[in-house]
């Protein structure tokens, strides 16, 4: 898939709360094709302490409106400056990067998408893709508190949405892997993105229940397109770059202690 470096225009910066923003980007030209799971390397121009680009998942693509969405959580100066951008500003992206999720073999497959915190970002695009192609999805989305649950209305367009919060402020109290849905049903396909301990717990559940399971990793990166070998994860095939061989990996390939 051809990669581009483009200046996109901020159509809207939707401030979700003091920690998260949704950047809606557009371009005067037609956006290139992108796949769920892929990410962009974003240049942050107005932050003197941000030297390298920042990897950010493709949250959603609306080809008709020619829109690309990025969901950003503020963790440091790079993400803070991205969240301060205003409509009309430009943002330089290198994209689309990385691989994609695997399509389930049959349309009646029972599919579970589990997201934690800002890790829900790639799952919205993936959910929209699955829905468009006639699959039914269940989303279990978790966060520390209700402020960390994002885009719930968007997710509801693409499947059944269940939530958990650690403080019980929304949905079931506890971690995503403790949700009653996981006890009540079995799934054929599980896709997950979020903090590593959460993904490991989901991977353990998938292994126990013999489900096919893919996780999306967030290793720190310098380039994002296979040039530096900084982003590796240990796999059954040795060290592989998360930016080119991933970010999506089948759990059977990862050398995780779960």
């Amino acid at each position: 898939m051809k990669k581009f470096m483009l200046d996109l225009i901020i159509k809207k910066n939707e401030v979700l709360n003091d920690q998260y923003s949704l950047l809606i980007l557009s371009s005067s030209e037609k956006l290139p094709e992108m796949l769920p799971g892929q990410f962009a390397e974003v240049r942050v121009d107005n932050s003197p302490t941000t030297f390298l680009r920042r990897p950010i998942s493709i949250n959603y693509v609306d080809y008709e409106a020619n829109e690309l969405w990025l969901l950003i959580q503020i963790v440091g100066d790079g993400t803070k400056k991205m969240c301060e951008l205003k409509a009309g500003n430009t943002l330089n992206l290198v994209f689309p990067l990385g691989n994609t999720f695997t399509f389930p073999e049959n349309k009646d497959a029972k599919i579970l998408l589990v997201g934690g915190g800002v890790g829900i970002a790639p799952l919205l695009f993936w959910g929209s893709y699955l829905k468009e192609r006639g699959y039914n999805c269940n989303f279990v989305l978790g966060g520390r508190s209700k402020e960390n649950l994002l885009q719930l209305c968007e997710f509801e367009r693409f499947g059944n949405v269940y939530t958990t919060t650690e403080d019980g402020s929304h949905g079931e109290k506890g971690f995503v892997t403790q949700h009653s849905l996981l006890k009540a049903s079995n799934f054929d396909y599980i896709f997950t993105c979020g903090p590593t301990p959460m993904m490991k717990a989901v991977a353990a559940y998938a292994t126990q229940t013999k489900a096919f399971c893919e996780v999306s990793l967030e290793n720190t990166m310098a380039c994002g397109f296979g040039a530096c070998l900084c982003c590796v994860t240990d796999t059954t095939e040795g060290h592989l770059c998360v930016c080119t061989e991933g970010p999506v990996f089948n759990i059977t390939k990862l050398k995780w202690q779960i």
Partner: peptide
């Protein structure tokens, strides 16, 4: 090569340990 993490961003630069 070395184990992850292999990269640290620094002021106007980066450290690598590939």
């Amino acid at each position: 090569g070395n184990a992850y993490p292999r990269m640290a961003e620094t002021p106007s630069g980066m450290l690598n340990a590939v």
